[in-house]
Every structure is written in C-alpha cells, then in structure tokens.
Design a protein around this nucleic acid. Structure first.
Lengths: 114, 114
DNA sequence: GACGAGTGCTTCGGTTTCCGAACCACTATG
DNA sequence: CATAGTGGTTCGGAAACCGAAGCACTCGTC
C-alpha cells in the first residue's frame, strides 16, 4: 500500500524532532504537527475512505503528501489500510482526545469576531 | 515585538490551506498543524517565558521559526507578548482542549510496546 | 566607561518539506 | 475497444524550515 523503506516516523520512546527525551507527548506533537496529519485523521473520523476519496475530502491535498502521511499514520498504528483507510481503535481514541478542539475552535471564532 | 507585515495567519471565517469553507475547525487545524506550533503552546503552558528561554525549552528550535510562530499565535490571540510571552485566556482554553492528548500519547506508547 | 553576559529578535544561504500535474498499472462498465 | 475510476509514484519547482551569525539593547561589575 505504501513504500516500506525508511520513513522516519516519530515514535514514543525515541528521540524526535525537538526532543531527545522520547517522552510520548513529544513524539505525538511531532507526528501530529506535520502538515495535513490532523486533517487526515479528522476526515477519517467521518468514515472510512479510499485514497482518492480521502484526497477529495481534504480539498486538493497533494497525493504525494497524502501517501506519506498515510504511511506515517499506518506505522504509528493510528490508521489501517485494507479495502479502504480507516482509523484503528487507537486512532479513534485519538480523535476522542481531539474532539474538544472543535469546541475550542468555535470559541476562538467567537473571540476573534469581537 | 514582531513584524506586523502581512503574515497570512489562519483565521476562522476565512478560507485556509485545504478548506474554502472557513469552518473554524479547519482554520484551527491549519494553525496548529504548523511545525512547532503545538509545542510552543505546550511549553508556554508550563509558564510564561521570554524568547530565548522559550527557545531553550523547545530544544534548539530555530529562532526564525519561533519568531514566526509567535507572531501567528499572537495574531490568533492564543499568545500574548509583553514582558514575557504567555498564553491568553483563549490559549489556556486551547491547552485544556489539548490535555487529553497527553493521556492518549501514553496509551499510544503502551500500544506500540506490545 | 569599557567589559562581558544576557536578551529579543532579524538575516540569509542551505536543506527539507510540500505541492501538483503528469503518469503508470489495474479494474470495471458499456 | 474506449472511457472512467482506482491506488498510488515521480519529479521539477515553490515554500517552509533550519541554524549560525549578527545587531541593538540592557544590566551588572570592575
């Protein structure tokens, strides 16, 4: 489904960009702080999708980057491929952890409108 | 505190990278999906910090990128400058929305160790 | 008052990442 | 056979990021 080369995916327990400690939260911030990563997870929460459908949901996201992100998220066991891409139980749990963000973004909207 | 040029900061209500709709959540995902953005917010939650101290907390983060992120986050009213940088009430609320992520990252760690 | 030592940044050349159109191989469906 | 859709990969150009260096300033202190 994707190249299994040497993809350099952040993992807890290993030093990542900006942290030698390997603290899980730092690995998570690295993984999720890559372009489109949060968005892909968010869109998959709306339901499983094939490659091209997922790309459409992300409004013209580059296919090459989508491919890379899917590989990273798959390695991280957040996403699983097969017939279509879908969130793993771990991925679902991540989305639940991210749900308060939607609420916050509405508050942010309200705040900036003042 | 930083250049007030034309910084192109994502805002709810405006089309952002990957979304023409301007839905607040999409603007938030864009803002927070930039390198170091989540980390800077996370570190400021440990307490206010001056520029160089914040850079140290982020373990050798590039000063130029820190400068850019601080400008974006300030424009977004998540961070405020002054004597030292600190989270605004909106920023504190954002951190609270992000707290479940720490818990998740520990579960992620446990899952990957299997 | 000249010396560090620290601060808040900016500049700039080099590297990495991202973008996106084109393309390839495959599977329908008509 | 043609057309349309799928799951990607390739690759040249653009944008983002990196990090060492430097600048202007303040704060002791000798």
């Amino acid at each position: 489904m994707a190249d299994e080369g040497t993809p350099e995916v952040p993992r807890p327990g290993r030093p990542v960009r900006g942290s030698e400690t390997g603290r899980p939260i730092m690995a998570a911030l690295d993984l999720l702080g890559r372009r489109w990563a949060l968005r892909v997870i968010w869109e998959l929460h709306q339901g499983p999708a094939g490659f091209r459908e997922l790309q459409r949901r992300c409004e013209r996201m580059s296919s090459s980057v989508l491919s890379t992100r899917l590989e990273e998220l798959t390695t991280a066991r957040v996403v699983a491929g097969g017939d279509r891409y879908r969130l793993t139980p771990l991925g679902e749990r991540l989305v639940r952890a991210l749900l308060p963000l939607q609420e916050w973004s509405d508050a942010w909207d309200a705040d900036l409108r003042e």
